[in-house]
């Protein structure tokens, strides 16, 4: 959805004017716009009657919220102990080669973001990678290429 004042207001006004909904509203923005836009944060502060700093503090605290647009597809590459030993760093390097992004970055075309996580709880499948909530286990560099092109074509993931 496009980031417009109307769309942002629609999300915000779906909730009561109560500061305890701040997080839920920002999560909605994140889901719908792939980030929490600055204007959204400011509109929300006005709506809830709280300082912008309080919302900014929350938005920077939670990893699930981002202040810059995230990619349409989010790659979560596990770099926990088991995955690390089984070659997570090679995988992360592979992603850097394929897509030109490192952890925390997004491709210029806005298609992919890469995040590393500390354990996905599927150590038996190490190294594990999750793209848009689909798990890929025992990923090799070869398999990585295939997965990425599947996701690009709209096959895997979203």
């Amino acid at each position: 959805m496009e980031v417009t004042e109307k769309n942002m207001r629609e999300i915000i006004e779906g909730y009561d004017r109560d500061q305890r909904y701040a997080l839920a509203i920002m999560q909605d923005m994140q889901r719908i716009f792939q980030y929490v836009p600055r204007e959204g944060l400011e509109l929300l502060a006005e709506y809830l009657g709280c300082p912008v700093s309080a919302l900014y503090s929350m938005a920077t605290f939670y990893k699930a919220l981002s202040l810059v647009p995230k990619g349409v597809h989010i790659i979560k590459c596990c770099d926990g102990t088991a995955c690390h030993i089984r070659g997570a760093s090679t995988l992360i390097e592979g992603i850097a080669r394929e897509l030109g992004i490192g952890p925390g970055e997004t491709t210029p075309d806005g298609q992919f973001s890469l995040e590393t996580v500390n354990c996905l709880g599927s150590c038996a499948l190490a190294p594990v990678m999750v793209i848009d909530d689909v798990y890929y286990g025992k990923v090799t560099l070869e398999r990585l290429k295939e997965i990425l092109s599947e996701v690009k074509k709209g096959g895997g993931g979203k």
Partner: peptide, 15 residues
């Protein structure tokens, strides 16, 4: 202090 005496202009950022 900013929140209670001032205006909430500053806050902790990040984690």
């Amino acid at each position: 202090a900013c929140q209670s005496l001032g205006t909430g202009a500053i806050a902790t950022v990040g984690r």
